[in-house]
């Protein structure tokens, strides 16, 4: 089923907000000045962070990849107490709210193609050594592939998988 990206962004807006917050926090961590932050808007992209060029290519790559770490982490943590309740179908309104929040945040963990462009720009030309290009190029390719995968709901599948993985593994380990 095709649902426009803007509708998905609205339905999962906390994920977009945390995605942009991740870029902002990584900028802060590397002391990169920020000129503008848009946490959410009706449009494409649904959010953005404008910042100065970082002094080192690793900083640019990590700023672009920031949402992968922060959204995945927050999504996985928030979902932990509620996922196991789905086994018994005893979800309250608060459970459903937390589940929606967790999946929304986790499904926006994948960096956007705009982020991939920034990563590529950071390592292209004489900006970075060959090893940097070798590390970053498969990541950029993967991001583009995952971006195409969003047409088959790969971002949602990723979000749900992140939320279910931890609690499911814990139960398997303790059984």
């Amino acid at each position: 089923m095709f649902i426009p990206g803007s509708v998905i962004s609205v339905a999962t807006f906390p994920g977009v907000v945390i995605h942009e917050l991740a870029h902002q926090l990584f900028c802060r961590a590397f002391k990169v000045p920020i000129s503008e932050v848009c946490y959410f808007r009706f449009g494409n992209p649904a959010g953005y962070v404008s910042h100065e060029k970082p002094s080192h290519w690793t900083h640019e790559v990590l700023i672009s990849a920031g949402p992968f770490f922060l959204n995945t982490f927050i999504g996985a943590i928030f979902s932990f107490p509620v996922i196991l309740k789905t086994n018994f179908g005893v979800l309250s309104f608060a459970d459903c709210l937390l589940l929606w929040l967790s999946v929304s945040i986790a499904m926006h963990a994948i960096p956007s193609t705009g982020d991939a462009k920034c990563m590529w720009k950071a390592v292209s030309g004489n900006n970075a050594p060959l090893i940097a290009k070798l590390i970053v190029s498969p990541v950029v390719a993967l991001i583009y592939l995952l971006s195409l995968g969003s047409y088959i709901w790969l971002d949602l599948i990723f979000g749900v998988a992140i939320c279910f993985l931890g609690p499911t593994l814990l139960v398997q380990m303790l059984s």
């Binding site: 870029h23 000045p33 000129s35 503008e36 910042h51 100065e52 700023i63 956007s112 982020d115 920034c118």
Partner: peptide, 16 residues
């Protein structure tokens, strides 16, 4: 999405 290269408006940070 992050966009690099805005030198004209230097600001150390923007409050959350």
């Amino acid at each position: 999405m992050s966009q690099a290269g805005f030198d004209n408006q230097k600001q150390s940070d923007i409050a959350i």
